[in-house]
């Protein structure tokens, strides 16, 4: 087996949060946004990351790219640990890892032309490149992502959302990275445009042999693009599995609840039989539950869940749960009954 492109071990990100109106000398509270995430990413592979809002998906992406301080290890293929690198050492890897952002228009500087925006990573990483070459490469890249190269002098506000996202993709690809982190790249787009952008990403990935970390909350999009899927809840990994296995046979109660909430385009389908209701809301990450973070909402929670943190177990299909396995119809019925009560 080839060496993974990225091997992340026990990645943690925490923020200190000062309570509003607190005294300036009081100790800020700790918010653990990502609490020990481990995964590997092989060259050319797409890892989907799903989870509710606030589960640490975007923070994970920002930590990998060095935008927020993190602890743990993120070992690149050549053995360097991306987390511990100084800003200067990190520069070499920044051109290897690029990012695509959620809001296509907001991620482009409104005062710069498209050509300047796309060229920025190139100019940053290869300052010696002559201008005419930069321009040619920008134009070639624009053509590659489906933009007219003649529009190189236009400004972001003159493009539609889908075109802006193509500009974002062109900017990410111009330095020929090996890994692209896509932070909800399509959630701000229309469904028809989503499909275009996703297909563009998949085509470029196949052409260039890229690895993708694809963050989304749309489960069907993730299923379409991912080789493997990681489910996050409150900054912890609940389940990692090849996409097909995860969607066909989810083991973790949370994954099952999440998947059962996906609308089924079939009028004969009865949601009452399959949808697993979850109790309550996402707990505050400032004060996460003991043991398994999901236990407060899990229909299958037992005393052991509060006492012991479940570890990711399994070979290809890994689950962090003391009692994995699909829900039985009785469990669903019981959960619905307590929900109704």
């Amino acid at each position: 087996m080839t060496k993974p492109l990225l091997d992340v071990r026990d990645l943690r990100v925490s923020f200190s949060v000062r309570q509003a109106g607190a005294m300036p000398w009081s100790r800020p509270r700790n918010l653990q946004a990502v609490g020990g995430v481990s995964f590997t990413l092989r060259p050319g592979e797409t890892l989907g990351v799903v989870g509710e809002s606030g589960c640490g998906k975007s923070t994970l992406a920002r930590a990998l790219i060095g935008l927020v301080p993190a602890t743990g290890r993120a070992e690149w293929q050549d053995g360097a640990d991306l987390i511990g690198l100084s800003a200067r050492q990190m520069m070499a890897y920044r051109s290897q890892i690029q990012m695509i952002f959620q809001d296509p228009l907001a991620s482009l500087d409104p005062r710069m032309t498209v050509g300047q925006i796309i060229a920025e990573p190139l100019v940053t990483h290869q300052p010696a490149l002559p201008r005419s070459q930069v321009r040619d490469r920008v134009k070639a890249m624009m053509d590659r992502v489906g933009l007219l190269p003649s529009q190189i002098n236009r400004y972001p506000h003159e493009f539609s959302g889908g075109q802006c996202q193509r500009i974002g993709i062109a900017r990410a690809l111009i330095v020929e990275p090996r890994l692209i982190i896509c932070d909800e790249p399509v959630s701000a787009l229309d469904v028809s445009i989503q499909a275009q952008v996703i297909n563009l990403l998949m085509r470029l990935q196949a052409d260039l042999g890229l690895s993708l970390i694809f963050i989304a909350h749309d489960l069907s999009v993730v299923r379409h693009i991912s080789d493997r899927v990681m489910v996050l809840y409150l900054g912890k990994v609940m389940e990692i599995a090849p996409a097909r296995d995860l969607y066909a046979d989810p083991q973790h109660p949370y994954t099952q609840a999440l998947l059962s909430a996906v609308p089924v385009p079939d009028p004969a389908h009865d949601p009452a039989a399959t949808v697993v209701p979850l109790k309550g809301d996402l707990p505050s990450p400032m004060n996460p539950p003991s043991g398994c973070v999901f236990r407060t909402r899990c229909p299958r929670a037992a005393p052991r869940c509060a006492a012991e943190v479940p570890v990711l177990a399994g070979d290809r299909h890994q689950t962090a749960c003391h009692f994995p396995g699909p829900f039985t119809p009785q469990e669903i019925a019981r959960a619905r009954a307590t929900e109704a009560a």
Partner: peptide, 9 residues
């Protein structure tokens, strides 16, 4: 867009 610039170094 500032974050994008920072991310790219």
């Amino acid at each position: 867009f500032i974050e994008a610039a920072r991310a790219t170094g």
